[in-house]
Amino acid sequence: MKGSIASLDLSAFLLQPWQDDPAGYGWIVLMAFLVTLSCGLIGNYLVLRRMSLVGDAISHSVLPGIAVAFLVSHSRDPWIMSIGAIAAGVLTTFLIENIHGRSRIKQDAAIGITFTTLFAIGVIIITVFAGKVDLDQECVLYGEITFIPFFDYVSLFGRPIAPQPVFVMALVTLITAGLIMLFYKVLLVSSFDSGLAGSLGFNQRMVHYGMMCVLSVVVVSAFESVGAILVIAMLILPGVTAYLITYRFPIMLVLTVVHALLSAFIGLHLGIWLECSMAGSIVVAGSLLFVLAWIFSPSQGLLRRVLYRFRWRENAETQAGGSPA
């Protein structure tokens, strides 16, 4: 099978695309960056609050929300899709909390039951109304960034500024970043010390539900580019990579941006080289960055651990040898 992968010709894979079609690839990279960034920003909080798998749950359970929204409105307007997604996201959060809080079922099982049920209902809606819904389960499970139409430009003041999907994604990213800046303190305190947040008078439930709403919108706008399952990786990867490198939260947010940028670029070229799905290769690039951080992290990396242990043993040996028996 080795012969089917093209040999690594750097100029062909790094420079050729930018010479041939700079605009097209530019939009793809920008879109990938925006998707990874908005997912990563909200994902940081998920990782810190130990709710990574709630992200998994919501990415699946928005399906019935958008299916119903589509059935009712017959349009793929991002606003309507977002409303459907928010409704489904809130419902998911509510169900998880209630199953977990009102019975002896643990949180992980509650998450599993909720999202699989909602996903199943979504699939049933889509298949039963197959004629009326212009969605299929495959487009939700796998999205593909290269299939996004980048020719429908949004105009502002009579001048076209960006293709519509990129524009919407940028808006979502801006809103996410803006909300994080606005509620920075509240989110920080409630993520690290919920007791303190409670005593300061922050409404934890509101924070939780608000975050889930933002998460639902981010997830649904990322669907078209990456699909429901790769979104989970995009939510978690930037956060955990940064978490391995730094102990400080603001730096973690900055590293998220760096991670998003790097994985968008590397992913694009990886995708061109291997001729495979661009969405997949962006996530693979992100995972590679994680592996690098895991090995080489200055404070907690595997390499440092090994070196530390080695040096420690060496010290112990010299001390043992130097001292009189």
């Binding site: 990782v47 990574s52 998994d56 799905s277 997949g280 962006i282 994680f290």
Partner: peptide, 18 residues
């Protein structure tokens, strides 16, 4: 939980690429 999400997403991405 983050480990599980990480492995889930990364493996799936590799699978999609293949």
């Amino acid at each position: 939980d983050a480990c599980m999400g990480l492995v889930l997403g990364s493996f799936f991405a590799v699978g999609i690429c293949l």
